[in-house]
């Protein structure tokens, strides 16, 4: 594990489970979707991330302090969610430490939930969900389930690093990316990504509530979206719009 980042376990964490991830990124899709799953499945906090590279803050719940980046779990599933935008310069060590921990816990597959900015999002009724795999075997798993695979292009940010580090360690990881707003919290995209996740593994949560509470969620997520925007600009997120070179396979 990176010396700068620690994953601290509060409870014993079973090995061999699947894991979800929701880290602030475009439209906060992953955070909204993962938080909704954690809340509805009544998952408990089992571990948290501590690092000198993170801002000096704590999140208060029912009067007690908690790390802003936490891992929740039940007997079938783990889920990591971050309530702060991870600073661009901390992203590599944090993601490395998380993937090292994933390896130690022999996580079966990692499903990273997120969004991909769609410039015409306002006019999209049902956001499409694209997928990316960390290795051949996982790619086959996606194709067999008729998922829309992103064949070429750039990914920037936490999901890009997760895929890269999981590929190095031969861990099966999937990024699910729903078409979303770049700058605005997008609960509809979060619902789309949960529906797509259910084509891959069973996560029994109702997305109707997410859609009904959409306006409330958008209002509550304004400040985290503001902070995330700055970090996205720092990591040059707009590179995802670039057209990749044609000749290099």
């Amino acid at each position: 594990m990176s010396a700068l980042v620690r994953v601290v376990e509060k409870k014993s964490v079973p090995e061999g489970l699947n894991m979800l991830q929701g880290i602030p990124d475009v439209g906060l899709v992953g955070v909204i979707a993962t938080s909704h799953i954690i809340f509805n499945l009544k998952m408990e906090e089992v571990a948290y991330i501590d690092s000198d590279l993170l801002p000096p803050l704590t999140v208060l719940y029912e009067g007690l302090p908690h790390s802003p980046i936490r891992i929740f779990g039940n007997d079938r599933l783990l889920a990591l969610v971050s309530e702060i935008a991870i600073p661009a310069n901390a992203l590599r060590p944090v993601m490395k430490a998380i993937v090292d921990w994933i390896e130690r816990k022999k996580v079966d597959k990692v499903f990273s939930l997120g969004g991909i900015a769609a410039p015409n999002r306002q006019d999209i009724e049902k956001p499409k969900v694209y997928t990316v795999a960390s290795n051949e075997e996982t790619l086959k798993f996606l194709r067999e389930r008729n998922m829309e695979v992103m064949e070429r292009g750039f990914l920037v940010g936490p999901q890009a690093l997760l895929l890269q580090y999981c590929a190095e360690k031969k861990i099966g990881a999937v990024a699910l990316l729903a078409e979303s707003f770049y700058n605005y919290p997008d609960p509809e995209a979060a619902a789309a990504v949960i529906n797509a996740l259910n084509q891959l593994i069973e996560v029994p949560v109702n997305v109707q509530e997410l859609l009904e509470k959409g306006e409330e969620i958008r209002l509550k997520m304004r400040d985290i979206m503001r902070r995330t925007r700055t970090e996205l600009a720092q990591m040059r997120k707009a590179r995802e719009y670039d057209i990749p070179s044609y000749y290099v396979a």
């Binding site: 306002q122 707003f181 700058n183 919290p185 959409g214 306006e215 409330e216 958008r218 209002l219």
Partner: peptide
């Protein structure tokens, strides 16, 4: 041709 301003305004 234009400047487009968007604002997220739930409710």
């Amino acid at each position: 041709d234009e400047v487009v301003v968007t604002a997220d305004m739930p409710y």
